[in-house]
Computed example of a mutant assay.
Amino acid sequence: MFVYEYKVNPKPQQINAINEAIRTSQFVRNKVLRYWMDNRGVGKTEMFRYNTLLRKEFKFVEELNSHACQTAVERVLKAVNRFYDNCKKQISGKKGYPKYKKNARSVEYKVSGWKLSENRKHITFTDKKGIGTLRLVGSRDLNFYQIEQMKRVRIVRRADGYYVQFSVQLDPRDTVKPLIPSQKAVGIDVGIKYFLAESCGNIEPSPQFYRQGEKHLSLLNRLKSKKYQKGKPQSQNYHKARVRYARKHLRVSRQREEFCKRVALRLIKSNDLIAYEDLNVKGMVKNRHLAKSITDAGWSTFRRWLDYFGYKYGKITIAVSPHNTSQNCSSCGEKVQKSLSTRTHVCSHCNYMEDRDVNAAINILQKGLSTVGQTESYKLGEFDPLASLEQSCGVTVGL
């Protein structure tokens, strides 16, 4: 699926209609979730039947498109299934029990409830909420795709306004030409001091967008807190301050996202194989001393874009175990204990000296190459390298 996003500038009455549609979708989701909690064991069919009863009971629910109500039920099903899967896998910590939505920010339609204009520059929502026609502001041309390919349409509310997203059924590999093989492989080690270090010695500095904007964020947060009145309806000045604070956070997150996207695309286009650490970021952020720096680095976002671009351009991305990648010597393989504050790897066995992160990146590349060394041969069942060696040498190979 491809997601194309467009900015829209609705009028005040349209803003009220969009907010009402979002609240209705949230209401349906919470009511269906309450139904599941009171009747544990009910399945998909019972949830959709309950959604039908809600449409008959509440007029404002009936005014929302039926497919938009169904997507709210699907979100409940997704949360319930994820909870059950986590319980079956016996993951540590909380299992993600479904919770009520308090501040929903989107409403999603399927193939009905909306209509595009002939030039694909305007969209009209045809349900009874009264949203009407919105002009799509963006550079992507929807004329390249058929209406049948657009499976979902979502209205999203953010701090800087409203957006309309189109989910287009399209394979990313069909949108690009195959790249010429670069005949290069690289291992990357993500970090806090540097964003990442490559096995070839290149260092990508960490931009630290949150750290740079932290002072301004603290100022905006203080101004927002000063205008807050406990136990009373909040003034317009408070809401303006809240929006300014939220927009600054949105800017920081967008800067981080674009940086991770740019670095991931550069690595994919310049290498045929990329090996990286399979880090447990969710567990690492529990360290209160490093949580802010890890979150600011955006490791999970970077990995998501790296895997996406690898699939899109037909490149190999391998996640390897991070065990001892920073401690082992990439030259002789001996383990050299060092603390996190030690930034230079010096091997006492072979006198090899290298930057700590570059040494780790070389180890990661070695692990990645060993992982894919004979994968295809084993898969096809053409030969067993160990069995062939035993037959030719007349010895038994031990592991």
Rank of each mutant, 00 (worst) to 15 (best):
V8L: 08
A21S: 10
V28D: 04
R29G: 09
R34G: 00
R34Q: 10
Y35A: 04
M37L: 07
N51L: 04
K59L: 10
E74N: 07
K88T: 13
S92G: 08
Y97W: 01
A104W: 09
R105P: 02
K110Y: 08
W114I: 11
T124M: 01
T124S: 00
T124K: 13
T126S: 11
L134H: 11
R135E: 11
G138C: 12
S139R: 15
F144V: 15
I147W: 03
I147V: 12
R152H: 13
Q165G: 03
F166A: 09
S167D: 10
V168C: 06
D174T: 14
V176P: 14
L179M: 14
K184M: 07
Y194R: 15
F195Q: 01
C200T: 14
G201M: 11
N202L: 11
N202V: 06
L219C: 05
K226F: 00
P233K: 13
S235D: 02
S235P: 05
H249Q: 13
V252G: 00
E258A: 13
F259T: 09
R266W: 04
A275Y: 03
V285I: 11
A291S: 12
T295W: 08
F302M: 05
D307H: 04
I318N: 05
Q327C: 02
C332D: 10
E334S: 14
S339E: 10
H345Y: 13
I362M: 12
Q366R: 13
Q366E: 13
T375G: 10
Y378V: 06
F383N: 06
A387W: 02
